[in-house]
């Protein structure tokens, strides 16, 4: 279980997160929605230690992870797929995937090879293109690659930042479904940040609505999806 309490993160003097508390339960999809600038990405970046919180606590499996480095946090089973199909375009598809497992290559090479095989089963298109440079992939394929890069570390918590950004609806559907299947079949915990609230709430178990760095609502996903007043007030539809 990931538990966050009173988290505050600042950029200079601007409070991007202003006292956020939430819980992501094991084996469930928790989605964080909200308008642009609500602090969604900052939340994930603070969990994976790319940003340092000013105050507050983050505990994962009952241990505080505040103050650890991003490299260390990956080793605790938390994998972050940042916004914008974050792959390294000058490296090949194969290398991008391998990169995600470098840290455990020496200790458990057989499992890494197995994990790579599983990823190619999950995304056969990546196997077809494994020698190509990541920069030559389509947007959807790049997002798959970014997720693969995270999955190959065999995480128990996946932080997914706006996977739908800039993708065609059909591709979004496919990616979200894959994540949903992973969660249901392997017990992966997912914290999914989305601007596309409808899609996210469609698969999530729980919804967190952020507004200007604070939690505006914290409800079961179905309930949040049905709350017309809430949607109108914060999401504008």
């Amino acid at each position: 279980m990931l538990e966050i309490k009173d988290l505050v993160t600042e950029y200079g003097s601007v409070k991007a997160l202003n006292g956020i508390s939430l819980v992501a339960h094991e084996g469930k999809i928790t989605t964080v929605i909200g308008a642009n600038g609500a602090g969604k990405s900052t939340l994930l970046r603070t969990i994976s230690a790319l940003e340092h919180p000013r105050s507050g606590s983050i505990t994962w499996k009952n241990k505080s992870i505040v103050g650890l480095s991003p490299e260390k946090i990956v080793r605790l089973g938390i994998a972050h797929v940042p916004e914008g199909h974050a792959v390294i375009s000058q490296l090949s598809v194969e290398e991008n995937i391998e990169m995600g497992a470098l840290f455990r290559m020496r200790s458990n090479k057989t499992d890494v090879l197995l994990a790579i095989q599983e990823i190619y089963q999950l995304f056969p298109r990546l196997e077809e293109r494994k020698k190509q440079l990541a920069g030559s992939l389509s947007g959807g394929e790049r997002q798959m690659l970014a997720i693969s890069r995270a999955l190959v570390s065999r995480p128990s918590l996946l932080l997914l930042d706006e996977p739908s950004l800039g993708l065609a609806p059909l591709v979004v559907e496919q990616i979200i479904q894959t994540v949903n299947d992973l969660c249901r079949n392997t017990g992966l915990t997912v914290l999914l940040v989305e601007q596309n609230a409808n899609t996210a709430l469609g698969v999530a178990d729980h919804g967190i609505l952020l507004s200007l760095g604070t939690v505006a609502a914290d409800l079961p996903a179905a309930q949040m999806k049905a709350d017309v007043a809430l949607r109108a007030a914060y999401l504008g539809y």
């Binding site: 490299e71 940042p82 995600g100």
Partner: peptide
């Protein structure tokens, strides 16, 4: 080699490299 890949990745995109567990 893996270390060589880690070096190239860190040089090209330090943030993604760190998120992949590479000690930059």
């Amino acid at each position: 080699t893996g270390m060589g890949l880690a070096m190239r990745a860190s040089a090209l995109n330090p943030e993604v490299a760190r998120l992949s567990g590479i000690r930059i």
